[in-house]
């Protein structure tokens, strides 16, 4: 049932990515890659550049420098790539639309306006493909329900189905489970793992739970100040290494607090 496009090896390669917002440098020459069939987690304190790097890859931010290559194709800065899909912490489905219509929307990039001006114009083959994607995430029986009526975990799986309907080879996940309870998180992480193992997707996920990162990914990337601190197999990343990522941020917060207190005194 799975389309052939998923079986081919696909690799995301990010090289020397730089991005500054005004004075503040968020990405400082970030370099990493993700292979087909691999789950890679990005860990780091707030402001370390994890989310920004994913947003640069999908064209939601325009990087100041650096290259993004997917499957041998170099992306244009600030433009979406058809082979790269993304799921978000806040899920970002259209709650009023049906689950099926939300999944179909993943295919908009390859549909002309005559077949996409309204949900009524979506071709039958697309709807069948979307049903297959929904079946892959285990929600085919909810196709006609409004997306907003599903639980958070189910909505996130619909968002994954939308990414599959895009026929992506690389799936980026920006804090995909931060808003979910432990059971739903487990389910979504299992799904991401299985997409890499069984469908050969290259998966990169920003996570805030080191424990989930260790259990579900092959490699963990540690980010601080917009560049890579470590890139290790998940099993080799111990608690100290993880704590080290958050220590500079904690120290910075404490220093700022101390400076303010001094000013007042």
């Amino acid at each position: 049932m799975r389309a052939d496009h998923l079986s081919a090896a696909a690799t995301l390669r990010v090289d020397g990515l730089r991005k500054a917002f005004g004075e503040k440098t968020v990405l400082d020459g970030l370099t990493f890659d993700v292979s087909s069939g691999e789950v890679v987690s990005l860990l780091g304190a707030n402001g370390s550049g994890k989310s920004t790097s994913l947003r640069c890859v999908v064209g939601l931010e325009r990087p100041d420098a650096g290259t993004i290559v997917v499957d041998g194709v170099t992306g244009k800065p600030g433009e979406a790539m058809p082979t790269v899909a993304m799921v978000f912490q806040k899920i970002h489905l259209v709650p009023r639309r049906s689950v099926l219509d939300n999944v179909c929307a993943g295919a908009l990039g390859r549909l002309g306006l005559s077949r996409s001006w309204s949900v009524l114009a979506f071709p039958r083959e697309l709807q069948e493909e979307a049903m297959a994607c929904l079946d892959r995430v285990g929600l085919a029986d909810r196709a006609r329900e409004k997306a907003g009526r599903l639980s958070g975990g189910q909505q996130q799986r619909v968002a994954v189905a939308r990414a599959l309907c895009q026929r992506a080879k690389v799936l980026l996940a920006d804090e995909p489970v931060s808003a979910l309870d432990p059971a739903a998180s487990e389910q979504v992480m299992n799904l991401l793992r299985s997409l890499a193992d069984d469908d050969g997707l290259a998966v990169a996920a920003v996570l805030h739970q080191p424990d989930l990162a260790r259990r579900f990914s092959d490699r963990i990337l540690g980010l601080a100040g917009g560049s890579l601190v470590f890139d290790s197999p998940a099993a080799e990343v111990d608690d100290d290494t993880v704590a080290g990522l958050y220590r500079p941020a904690l120290e910075a917060l404490e220093a700022a607090e101390a400076a303010r207190t001094k000013e007042f005194a």
Binding site: V58, A80, P82, A105, L108, G109
Partner: peptide, 9 residues
């Protein structure tokens, strides 16, 4: 943003 990522015009 989600649809823009999917390549929607």
């Amino acid at each position: 943003e989600a649809l823009r990522v999917a390549g929607a015009s």
